[in-house]
Design a protein around this nucleic acid. Structure first.
Lengths: 227, 227
DNA sequence: CGGCATCCGGGAAGATACTG
DNA sequence: CAGTATCTTCCCGGATGCCG
């Protein structure tokens, strides 16, 4: 009937049955930092249509990657949340993201979601650059707040109250990504009103250099055979 | 690629543009152990049709993941080979394979390709079980030969002449997978003529216990809300 | 507003047959 | 052996509309 299976015992093939559908892994990416509602998922996935999102969520729920849960009153809204095993897919998102960062065809100027921006810090963090750094950096991106904690050369970052931090960065994620990955000077972003830094500014200046991009791989032209 | 971009600067999203098409990652899996010809790729990917394979190979070549190369005479055949960066996608295949091994819906009784079987050993190898083991295991699976080398708690496995090893295992990959992951007794497989072990048999008996499967994650029923 | 069903058009994947 | 060519099937994406 539905001969669209890979029919392959290989773990990788089974993984593709689970999360190989279009958008599926990006839905997981959006949930890695915590539960979200349907419309917040759509915000983070510009271009997905409601019916496709519905179907992906149903599939992922049936496969025990995602759970649909009702928040207690007064919120009383439905949220989608990764199961503990679904949360383990974080490694997948990080590894493929790190691999694709070397792609010769990657265009970093495209729009990026809040969750992606935060996840990119988890992904690209270079511990050897943070050996002697300590402190907390708070982020206020749109209506979401996150806290990054540096200690003993390790970085933890997740949802949390931004104002508990040594420095609070407020603005939009696109500008933050520009500062971290695009080499855009902080002063310029502040002047443009895209970012606002309050508190230990020097800490944040050092922080944004903790996420080096890997060298680009050669593109297809480099492999044109002489034949 | 196609007109259906994700339009997302996130590395994971870009990775899906590169290898998110159906079959693409499995094509890469088949090439991880070295160059292959078109028809050998088809053998390892039961179910893929020729035109889809053609298209994937063209796509992957355009994206500098794969190179198409002509073997020198007298072979003079076309082969497909991963670029150095394409080879780095091994991490992706291993991570998603390891993640999917915990899936409650994984069916290990499906057919499995020779490359998958060899790659599964790279993926599931547990170094802590091999601390004091040393030796070489040769495999003759179909017309392909591989050698696994154990030294200092590390495993390397790839194409190589099987008869240089301390023990040579001959037969089909399905039976080998059954011995390693299915707990099928070796004697039974030999009696059935599916596997043939020559040489240091005790080494191979220990070898097949180096690849433990992870615990299954709870399935969707476990998350049914009390309502 | 949030979530889901339905209809439709376009295009990708599958099956089969065929060619150099 | 290494792919094309063609036809069919079905998934994806957009629009609309229903229901709480």
């Amino acid at each position: 009937m539905k001969k669209r299976f890979y029919d392959d015992a290989c773990g990788a093939a089974h993984a593709l049955e689970l999360v190989g559908d279009r958008w599926a892994l990006l839905v997981i990416r959006e949930l890695l930092l915590g539960p979200k509602r349907f419309s917040d998922l759509r915000t983070g996935l510009p271009g997905i249509s409601a019916n496709v999102l519905t179907q992906r969520l149903e599939d992922l729920e049936a496969k025990a990657v995602v759970v649909r849960r009702k928040l207690p009153p007064p919120a009383s809204a439905w949220v989608y949340e990764l199961t503990p095993w679904g949360l383990e897919a974080e490694e997948i998102v990080k590894v493929i993201g790190r691999w694709a960062a070397r792609s010769p065809s990657h265009d970093p100027s495209l729009p990026i979601s809040v969750s992606s921006t935060v996840m990119s810090m988890r992904t690209m963090f270079a511990p050897e650059r943070a050996k002697d750094m300590t402190g907390k950096i708070g982020f206020r991106l749109g209506r979401e707040e996150f806290v990054a904690t540096l200690a003993k050369g390790r970085l933890t970052i997740g949802r949390g109250a931004a104002d508990e931090a040594d420095v609070v960065v407020e603005g939009d994620q696109q500008a933050l990504a520009g500062a971290i990955y695009g080499g855009v000077p902080l002063a310029k972003l502040e002047k443009a009103g895209a970012l606002n830094v309050k508190g230990d500014r020097a800490l944040f200046e050092r922080y944004i250099r903790l996420f080096p991009l890997p060298e680009k791989a050669p593109d297809a032209k480099a492999f044109r055979a002489p034949e």
